[in-house]
Simulated assay, not measured.
Amino acid sequence: MTKCLLVDEDQEERQVLSQLLGQYGFDMSESASAEAALKLCRANSPDIVVTADRIGSMSAGEFVKRVRRAANGRKPVVLVYTEKANTDEIGSAIIEGAAEFLLKPFDRDLLEFKLKQVGLL
Rank of each mutant, 00 (worst) to 15 (best):
V16Q: 03
V16H: 04
L17A: 03
L17W: 03
S18N: 11
Q19P: 03
Q19G: 08
Q19F: 12
L21R: 00
L21W: 02
L21S: 00
L21F: 11
G22M: 09
G22F: 09
Q23L: 14
Q23Y: 10
Y24P: 02
G25N: 10
F26K: 01
F26P: 02
D27N: 13
D27L: 15
E30N: 11
A32L: 03
A32G: 11
S33R: 15
S33Y: 07
A34M: 12
A34F: 01
A34C: 13
E35L: 15
E35S: 12
A36M: 05
L38E: 03
L40S: 15
L40G: 05
C41M: 10
C41E: 11
C41T: 05
R42E: 10
A43D: 14
A43L: 14
A43G: 04
N44D: 15
N44L: 15
N44Q: 11
P46Y: 02
P46L: 13
I48D: 00
V49H: 01
V50I: 10
T51D: 02
A52K: 05
D53S: 07
D53I: 10
I55G: 00
G56I: 15
G56L: 15
M58S: 06
M58K: 08
M58Q: 14
S59K: 03
S59V: 06
A60I: 06
G61F: 06
E62A: 13
R66V: 04
V67A: 10
V67Y: 00
V67M: 05
V67T: 08
A71G: 11
N72H: 09
N72G: 13
G73E: 14
G73A: 15
P76T: 06
V77I: 12
V77G: 02
V77L: 07
V77M: 06
V80L: 13
